[in-house]
Design a protein around this nucleic acid. Sequence first.
DNA 1: TAATCTGAGTCTTTATTAAAGACTCAGGTG
DNA 2: CACCTGAGTCTTTAATAAAGACTCAGATTA
Lengths: 157, 157
Amino acid sequence: MKKPPEISTSHTRVPASECSLAKAIRVVGDMWTLLILREIICGAERFDQIREDLGITRSVLSNRLARLVQEGILERYQYRDSGQRARKGYTLTEKGRALLPVVITLREWGGQHLEPGNTSLRLQLQTTDGLRVETKLIREDGLEVSDMSGVVATVKE
Amino acid sequence: MKKPPEISTSHTRVPASECSLAKAIRVVGDMWTLLILREIICGAERFDQIREDLGITRSVLSNRLARLVQEGILERYQYRDSGQRARKGYTLTEKGRALLPVVITLREWGGQHLEPGNTSLRLQLQTTDGLRVETKLIREDGLEVSDMSGVVATVKE
DNA sequence: TAATCTGAGTCTTTATTAAAGACTCAGGTG
DNA sequence: CACCTGAGTCTTTAATAAAGACTCAGATTA
């Protein structure tokens, strides 16, 4: 309860049905779904491992995995540990890997704006040959934007 | 059910309690929360306007707004339309504005991987003086990464 | 060959959370 | 003073999630 209204972007009402952001939110904007993606990104690809790491219910995990497979974000593969029968695991599809920047950007926000000091473990991206990869905000003229105070959101047609 | 296991990143188990990504997911990784942030980013700052745009219940909206205010992502301000009594609206705090890259990255994913052709309206970022701003994946050596196939996630200490 | 074990689920019951919509409350207007 | 409106709260009902028992397929052991 502080500021005056500021330069309000005069609310261009974007019907959620036509908004790719709203659609994306409906597909992956769920706490369990995001946590499951985090697990798979971190390398957990098997049902029970994800379940134990997250403490999620079997039925919810089963439900979310099925949705992610159906959306084409995950796919199932068969693996066989020596002396074990063939089992199934989940990996990201190309469409799923394309979510990595989203996840990393969210992680960066969390690292900067939550948790006071404790940044013990951090999820990062790198190329297969070991170069670090980061997401950056780049202006049209090529300069990097370092703070958000001069940035506004707009809706373009 | 296709691929072989591929170069699995040997699962560094990251306890969710120490992971800034998991924390961020618990704070904003909820469908309604994300949709509300989208509304406010698009310029809707009043209770009933958000409610009508989203078709969300009053009680859920009230609950989510309170949580976002408590987390320091939104703040309330007073406004007064002429000939009306003073009312309250919600805007992003600095911490909330720092979420813009996350939201934009998600929107870009949605635009590219959902909805076949229909990209009528798109949320974008720009500087206050009108320059477009985009999120990009940049390698350590400064080159831009255009496709994700050569990128992997790792957990660093 | 039968009995056993294990990962990856499904099913059932109970508890949480959300949806629908009536009710409240403060302050400004006629 | 009676009425209106934005911004909620409250109550009831419906949908989701949690807890945990049960299932099923195939490899192993006996």
